[in-house]
């Protein structure tokens, strides 16, 4: 800063000295006015040179700013699309996760409730949900596979007996469901009724299969 100031002042002083010298050197007075005018202009230029620099810098800064802004806009334009895409993806993922989570928890609750309420073993409970237009999950289908407990069965054997049943989760529509006997039928009906009441679903949405005890 100080260096720059001394440079500037040196320049002005030297120019003034040269101008006076020139006045002395000039051969006659007819040229004097013109030379004085030009020298005055040069000295004004020297005095104003910092302002010129400032203006040039300002212009550069303005250009820079506009270019940066331009770039910024250009950069921002494409990301917005990307961001939106990402947001959509994330939203979908989240919705799916929520759906899965809800289904799982619902299955758990149904399993527990039926097991405690009807005293049967629930082999499998499957809940299918779907997002409706208002992005709210709706129950589409409830599938329950139960097995009437044999009285002398104990828990350790239960886990063993479950294994062979696992592959049996075939899609079973209500028409196919044909409970083996009247007791099972009434049990299925009761379970359906209970599910209808507790989950606010229609009969068509509930599929119940009752297996014979092993």
């Amino acid at each position: 800063m100080v260096e720059w100031l001394t440079d500037w002042i040196k320049q002005i002083i030297l120019l003034v000295l040269i101008a006076t010298f020139l006045d002395l050197l000039l051969p006659n007075h007819s040229m004097e006015r013109y030379v004085k005018l030009v020298m005055g202009l040069i000295i004004i230029m020297a005095i104003l040179s910092p302002i010129f620099k400032l203006i040039k810098n300002d212009l550069n800064l303005a250009n820079l700013a506009t270019t940066i802004q331009h770039k910024w806009n250009m950069k921002e334009m494409s990301p917005i699309r990307d961001i939106k895409e990402n947001a959509d993806k994330l939203q979908k993922n989240q919705d799916q996760l929520i759906q899965k989570q809800t289904e799982k928890s619902m299955e758990k609750i149904i399993k527990q409730n039926i097991q405690t309420k009807f005293g049967v073993e629930v082999v499998q409970a499957k809940v299918k949900t779907e997002l409706n237009r208002n992005h709210v999950l709706e129950i589409k289908q409830i599938e329950v596979v139960t097995r009437t407990k044999s009285i002398n069965q104990k828990s350790p054997t239960k886990t063993k007996s479950m294994e062979p049943v696992a592959p049996v989760h075939v899609e079973i529509t209500p028409t196919i469901i044909k409970p083996s006997n009247q007791v099972d039928k009434s049990l299925a009906k009761e379970i359906t009724e209970y599910l209808k009441q507790s989950w606010q679903v229609t009969t068509e949405q509930i599929h119940i299969l009752i297996e014979a005890p092993r």
Binding site: Q11, M39, A46
Partner: peptide
């Protein structure tokens, strides 16, 4: 003068103009 000007970092344009003015004045005179 040139030496002084370069030392004082006077703008080249100014100095050249001054010298040209001196030369023109002398020759014309």
């Amino acid at each position: 003068l040139e030496h002084l000007a370069t030392q004082a970092r006077v703008n080249n344009l100014f100095f050249e103009t001054i010298l040209k003015i001196v030369g023109i004045a002398y020759i014309a005179e």
